[in-house]
Simulated scan of single mutants.
Amino acid sequence: MLAGVEITTWHLDQQAASDIRAATPPATPMTLTRVELPSPELNRYLYAGVGGDWFWLDRLSWSWQQWYDWLDRPGVETWLATVRGTPIGYVELDGHREGEVELAYFGLLPAFVGQGFGGHLLTVALQRAWSLAERWPQLQPVRRVWVHTCTLDGPAALKNYQARGMKLYRTETEEADLPAESPGAWPGANRPPRLGPA
């Protein structure tokens, strides 16, 4: 256990869809598909696979029912990024606050980091966040999209959010106790070799 690790958290938002600054699409086509049926198994796989190297710990102990109840709410959406039918990353949108959408979770599986997918995935994720109320007519129109990232996330995360037009509005620093090592995708998993598309 590492005690008293200093963690800086950055809070960013957008006030209008016109604030999005689109990234150049990657050379290899990527598809983003909405997962329309709640799937605890899929979301837990994505959460552990994307966040395993970055100390995403909060949901690892969730039961199947906790996952299902979270996903089966109006305004909560999972968007799955694939290349040639292979999952490469995802975004989870949380629109349960009136007029706001949080990018609750966002990222790529380790083998696909650094290949130009992240900026494009975030561009499309922000577009989907701003249009969320069109898919959930019981919700208020979206007035704000926000996210937070921290020093435990990937080193390119903050720059990517800012490059896509999100603006920093608050910074916080706190201490936390962490395991000596990040959990990885599953117990005993090694970081995979770079498996980019052919």
Rank of each mutant, 00 (worst) to 15 (best):
G49D: 05
G184Y: 07
M166W: 06
L103T: 08
L121A: 03
Q65N: 13
L121C: 05
A185G: 03
N160S: 13
A81N: 09
Q65S: 13
W54T: 10
E100R: 14
L121F: 01
L80F: 05
D19S: 15
G119W: 06
M1K: 09
Y169S: 02
E100Y: 05
L195E: 15
L168G: 04
T8V: 13
W10K: 04
V83L: 06
P155M: 07
S131M: 10
D58L: 05
G51D: 02
E175G: 12
T86H: 08
L158Y: 03
P25L: 01
D53I: 01
R144E: 08
S18T: 15
E41Q: 11
V145L: 09
G52I: 03
R170V: 04
N43P: 00
R84C: 09
L109D: 03
G188L: 07
Q15Y: 09
G114C: 07
I88G: 05
T151W: 13
T82F: 00
A125M: 01
T151A: 05
R128K: 15
P155S: 14
P193Q: 15
R97S: 14
N190G: 13
Q115H: 15
Y68E: 03
E98P: 13
P40Y: 00
P193E: 15
A81T: 10
R144D: 03
T8D: 04
P179C: 05
D94L: 11
G75C: 11
Y68Q: 12
H148N: 14
P29G: 08
V101N: 05
L132C: 06
L109E: 02
E41W: 03
P137A: 10
E98M: 07
A156K: 13
T9L: 11
T149Q: 07
R59C: 02
R21V: 15
T171H: 02
V142C: 07
Y105W: 12
V91I: 09
G188K: 04
V83D: 03
